[in-house]
Design a protein around this nucleic acid. Structure first.
Lengths: 150, 150
DNA sequence: TACTATTCGAGAATGATTATCAATTGCGGT
DNA sequence: ACCGCAATTGATAATCATTCTCGAATAGTA
């Protein structure tokens, strides 16, 4: 069985696990998010689905992503200063380091920041579902580029 | 001297400190963010400025906020599921606990989460400017409301 | 006070997101 | 395996937050 089919099945399993009705569009979108590590934008997801021979509309991409967010399967990242949201599968907790110059997003797989969730619960009385941490700065490439310009 | 004038002067000082040209609009917007703890939206800021007898346009509010963000004086929070950004003065590090039901934002003044910035720097080589942490959950009021409905 | 670069502001333009609704489809029950 | 129906899809229109434009007004400086 080829890799593509495997990840489609893995996505189907995940949908069943979360009691989300399975459709081809949802399967492809989720499998893309589960395997890609490029924090895609809406547009990238839309193109990916069509590029793989499935029909899809923008409305469906938006609806599906909202559904996955509501189920805490993915998170939304406000990285792009151009107002483009980016999406990321979030089974394994990690945080994002974002370049304010080129908008690159780097994953750091360390979940220490999650420890604050318990503190937040005690402090506020909230029932906590999730949390996310973002670091903003200049990536090594942009540091070099900008120092050369100066 | 009345409180309002004091905070306007404080805002003017802050602008000078950051070498940002002082204008009435910027002074009022910054002073509002410095003193209010309600994480206002664009619309709230716009109404506040006009309501205090200053002329302002939406474009100016957007421009000013972007300027303050670029100077790390304030941060942008993607709290409102309706796509409304919220803004917060960020001199004292703290994180936000956000209710996914009513969009309420609660401040928690604990900067432990900031410790991860050093880790991010070592891990990625980024030059780190800032970081923010958000916790998502249900506030006590919405917990009660939703359990009564069920 | 005069100069100049910067900022302001009203409205237009843009573009991402949401709404609409008829046609289609997944899926539990028979 | 088939039915029936609730849920989903998708093309398009509608909405609305944000950005752009550019002439007028203004802040800071000498």
């Amino acid at each position: 069985m080829v890799q593509e089919q495997k990840t489609l099945l893995a996505a189907a399993d995940k949908l069943k696990e979360y009691k989300i009705k399975n459709t081809p569009q949802r399967q492809v979108i989720l499998s893309y998010l589960m395997t890609s590590h490029d924090h895609p934008s809406i547009e990238m997801i839309f193109n990916y689905v069509r590029g793989n021979g499935f029909s899809v509309s923008l409305a469906t991409v938006y609806n599906t992503l909202q559904l996955l967010i509501d189920n805490n399967l993915i998170i939304e990242i406000a990285a792009d200063s151009g107002g483009h949201m980016r999406y990321d599968y979030f089974e394994v907790p990690h945080y994002h380091v974002i370049c304010v110059n080129c908008n690159k997003i780097v994953d750091v797989f360390d979940d220490k920041y999650k420890k604050n969730e318990e503190h937040a619960r005690l402090e506020t009385g909230f029932q906590v579902f999730n949390s996310q941490y973002e670091v903003y700065g200049l990536c090594p490439e942009c540091q070099k580029k900008l120092s050369e310009e100066a």
